[in-house]
Amino acid sequence: MSFSSLFESGESARNKSHFATLVNLAQVSGMHEEEKVVLSRFKAILDISDADYDKIVENPKAYPVTPPNTSEERIQWLHDLFKVVFADHHMEEAEHILLKKYATALGYNDEDAEYLVERSIQIFNGHLNLEDYRHLLNKDR
């Protein structure tokens, strides 16, 4: 561990961890152009420097998953993972397996992780039943 990394803020470390997770997920099935575009957006959102970006892309597994502190952040991070996976409008089996592992790493128990991943796949694939569609349409009314 470098001397400068001792003084890194918790938020910066979590952002790098999250970005590394996103990169690893994109790389597991071969990074497509659509995924690169989404990753570049997350680079800006998470305030990842060019130097850190290069290091993370080179070896995303060097950054352990550092789960967020709140349930709202966990849901946001899970949503971010799905944005990367579905950037190319297709989910590979390796991505599916990794999503379940990451959901557990974010702090969900196995049963909740399984449910959230499977439900998110339905939502991102557009396979909603009428009741769910109505609920999502009227959610913020």
Rank of each mutant, 00 (worst) to 15 (best):
L137C: 10
S2C: 05
E34R: 09
G126V: 10
I121P: 01
G10Y: 05
I121D: 02
E33Q: 12
V38G: 02
L39Y: 04
K83F: 04
E72P: 02
E118N: 14
M31E: 07
I121H: 01
L130P: 05
A105W: 04
S2A: 15
H127S: 09
S5L: 09
E72V: 15
E8W: 02
S120I: 05
E93V: 11
K83N: 12
H32D: 13
N125Y: 03
D112R: 00
V37R: 14
E131P: 05
L81H: 08
G126C: 10
E92S: 12
V28I: 15
V38Q: 06
L25T: 09
L6R: 15
R141L: 15
G107P: 07
S49P: 02
T70C: 07
A26W: 08
G30R: 07
F7P: 08
K100D: 00
A103K: 00
D52Q: 12
M91W: 03
H90L: 09
I97T: 15
D112Q: 03
L128G: 11
K83W: 04
G30C: 10
N109F: 02
S29T: 14
A26P: 08
H135R: 14
N138A: 13
Q122S: 11
E118S: 11
L25G: 05
Y108D: 00
S120V: 04
S9T: 15
R119K: 13
H18R: 14
N15E: 11
E58D: 12
R74W: 01
Y115I: 08
R141D: 14
D110L: 00
T70Q: 07
N109Y: 01
E111T: 02
S9K: 05
F3M: 11
L39Q: 03
V57A: 07
N129Y: 13
L130T: 13
E72Q: 14
L81D: 09
G107Q: 07
H90P: 01
N59F: 04
D132S: 13
F82A: 02
D80H: 14
V38H: 01
V23W: 05
V38K: 06
